[in-house]
Simulated scan of single mutants.
Amino acid sequence: MWGQQPVCAYIMWYARGNGLFSHMVSALPITALLSEGFELRHAYLPIHTHYYLIPWLMGVYLMMILVLLLIIPKNKMQFVVVLPIALILSFIMIYFNVLGRIFGGINGVF
């Protein structure tokens, strides 16, 4: 049990540094939330009367992204660099359907 390390926390430790690698690591959680929140537009809810929840869920994702943007970058310069990197990486993930390829068949989108 003591030999297991939380991998994500270990990687995020590098986000507080300087350089391109730390900026990329800082942008990864924001990228994942942006891509996942954008894919909610294809969400299938079994009971069709609950489609009104999708915009609310997208709002929750937006709030989580804003909190991450306020917490992760340690100064304004890193914020200015991390935001475009996160946007570019999320556009790439959405265009190539990375989440659909990793977790295929969840939404039924090919």
Rank of each mutant, 00 (worst) to 15 (best):
L20A: 10
V82F: 01
R16I: 10
M77D: 12
A86V: 06
I30T: 04
E36M: 15
N97G: 04
F96H: 01
C8G: 12
G104K: 10
G108E: 08
M58A: 12
E36I: 14
M12Q: 09
F21H: 03
I47G: 02
V109G: 05
M93P: 00
I11L: 11
A15M: 06
I47L: 08
N75S: 04
R101D: 09
L62R: 05
Y14L: 14
F21M: 07
A9H: 07
L45K: 04
W13E: 15
H42I: 09
V67G: 02
Y95A: 15
L87R: 04
G17T: 09
L40S: 01
V67K: 02
I47E: 04
F38L: 13
L69R: 01
R101Q: 13
K76W: 03
S35N: 05
L40F: 13
L89C: 14
Q78A: 10
Y44T: 09
Q78C: 00
Y61D: 06
A43H: 04
I102G: 01
T49L: 13
L34I: 06
G108W: 11
Y61R: 02
L53K: 11
M64W: 05
I30K: 00
Y95T: 15
L68W: 10
I47W: 04
L70R: 07
L70I: 05
Q4T: 11
A43C: 08
P46T: 12
F21K: 05
Q5A: 13
